[in-house]
């Protein structure tokens, strides 16, 4: 039985808000497909990649929602400088999940990670890594 603290939207009790890791959480659905577990606004339908208590666009109430597994690259880059805890080079992309939010993800590529996917490339989420990850498809 969840503890009723106040009158915040019911989403507080539907998603796990105790996780400290701020990255979008990728969960595997019963059919095996990976999804980003977030919320969707009940007022304006804004998709949100995080378990936030209200809609960032309009402040409306939200319900738990899952997004993906596929999307399209909005933009991408290869990071070639040292960043704490990481080994350059590595490719990052902003991915617009189909009917979902824009999420930042590492792009899993063959070889040394030296290649960023072109804008518009179709990608698919991958589960099992701490970072949000996508791979290029089709």
């Amino acid at each position: 039985m969840p503890l009723a603290i106040d009158s915040r939207p019911a989403v507080w009790f539907h998603v796990d808000v105790t996780v400290v890791d701020p990255r979008p959480r990728i969960v595997v659905a019963p059919d095996g497909a990976p999804h980003v577990a977030g919320v969707r606004c009940q007022a304006c339908a804004e998709p949100v990649a995080y378990p936030w208590p209200a809609c960032p666009e309009c402040g409306g109430p939200v319900v738990a929602a899952e997004f993906g597994p596929e999307g399209v690259v909005w933009s991408a880059t290869v990071v070639r400088i040292p960043v704490a805890g990481r080994t350059p080079p590595y490719a990052l992309a902003y991915v617009d999940l189909d009917d979902g939010p824009r999420v930042l993800a590492h792009v899993v590529v063959d070889g040394d990670g030296d290649t960023a996917p072109a804008v518009g490339t179709r990608v698919r989420l991958r589960a099992g890594a701490p970072d949000p990850q996508v791979e290029v498809i089709g």
Binding site: P22, R23, Y50, V79, I81, V83, L92, L104
Partner: peptide, 13 residues
């Protein structure tokens, strides 16, 4: 503590 920072997005990126 921010998703982008935790994902390794340096500001130049």
């Amino acid at each position: 503590t921010d998703p982008e920072g935790a994902t390794g997005l340096a500001l130049p990126a």
